[in-house]
């Protein structure tokens, strides 16, 4: 177990090093000059040169890189001149918004997806199976931003069940928070529900054909007991392996959904940064999302080892 974890943590650090390198390199990869955001076209070459010096852009690349690593290791993601505050503070302020959106979506996706998958598998080739599979295919095919707009039009504009957008912090008003988060989280979760439902179904069907299910049957256990104690724990092992991927996809999807529902999260911060060429914000935001993504995957690995004793051997 300790070795398994050590391997995973080491792996996460390698990925982190690469991701931070890429975040740094964005400034070189994206066309246009970072100074353009701060100076209008009439700026003199001297003004440009002075700003480049202030931003450290006149240093050799290797120095800039070391400088970048030195800063991020201290949690300093730089200063956004446009926002006039530190990038770290700007991100931390918006992080709970994005995390609650992705977290609620993940919870919804797991509960709905796993339940639907079980219902389908238990009723293999009968009508509930067909209903679930059709719905799952629909969920996988519908673009989430389109679904989001449709939901806003229907549930917010026409029926006024939910606000059209915006965000209420849970600390201010828990019910208002729920009201503001349900529709975007549902929109975000739909694709993943389809994905998880199909995984769970396939995995469950495979497990139900295994010898140990017949053993459970020979013990005289009821169908429900067999499903809950023997079928499900085994069927969930492969589902858990994709939970990390799902969480990553939800974080990515949140960037779009935050736009659709005008939610002030990290995604909107990054997109705002891109539109205004606010490089420290882009770099810091991406790095932050990557760190969260890696953290989630590490947590899933630990959970995985807890569920499947065979993994702990490796």
């Amino acid at each position: 177990m300790a070795r398994f974890l050590a391997k995973r943590i080491a792996g996460a650090f390698v990925v982190l090093a690469l991701v931070s390198l890429m975040s740094f390199a964005i400034i070189w990869l994206v066309p246009g000059d970072p100074t353009a955001a701060f100076l209008d076209t009439s700026a003199t070459p001297e003004q440009v040169a002075r700003l480049r010096h202030e931003l450290g852009l006149d240093q050799p690349m290797i120095i800039q890189m070391l400088d970048w690593y030195g800063r991020i290791l201290h949690g300093d993601l730089g200063h956004s001149i446009l926002l006039n505050r530190s990038v770290t503070a700007a991100i931390l302020e918006r992080l709970p918004v994005t995390l609650s959106l992705a977290g609620v979506a993940l919870t919804l996706a797991l509960i709905a997806g796993v339940s639907a998958g079980i219902v389908a598998a238990v009723n293999h080739n009968r009508w509930p199976d067909q209903v679930v599979m059709t719905a799952a295919l629909f969920g996988l095919s519908v673009p989430d931003f389109w679904l989001g707009i449709m939901l806003i039009l229907l549930l917010a504009v026409k029926f006024d069940f939910f606000p059209t957008g915006g965000y209420v912090p849970i600390s201010e008003d828990p019910l208002g928070w729920l009201d503001s988060i349900v529709m975007p989280a549902m929109t975000l979760a739909v694709i993943q529900v389809g994905f998880i439902a199909r995984m769970t179904r396939a995995s469950m069907l495979e497990v139900l054909n295994q010898d140990f299910i017949r053993t459970a049957d020979a013990k005289g256990l009821t169908r429900t007991e067999i499903m809950l104690h023997h079928g499900l724990p085994n069927a969930l092992v492969p589902v858990l392996t994709v939970a990390g991927i799902v969480a990553g996809a939800l974080l990515g999807g949140a960037v779009i959904i935050e736009q659709v529902f005008s939610i002030p999260g990290v995604g909107r911060l990054i997109i705002g940064g891109i539109l205004s060429r606010d490089y420290p914000v882009i770099q810091g935001g991406l790095l932050f999302l990557a760190v969260i993504y890696l953290g989630v995957n590490l947590a899933v690995d630990i959970l995985y080892a807890a569920v499947d004793p065979r993994v702990r051997l490796e």
Partner: peptide, 24 residues
């Protein structure tokens, strides 16, 4: 009939490698 299994009736299978639940 199910109620008889695991009480009046029991069975040992041919394949011990796959007859047990791997995560229990």
């Amino acid at each position: 009939w199910r109620e008889r299994r695991g009480s009046d009736l029991a069975m040992i299978f041919q394949e011990p490698m796959t007859a047990l639940n791997p995560v229990m």
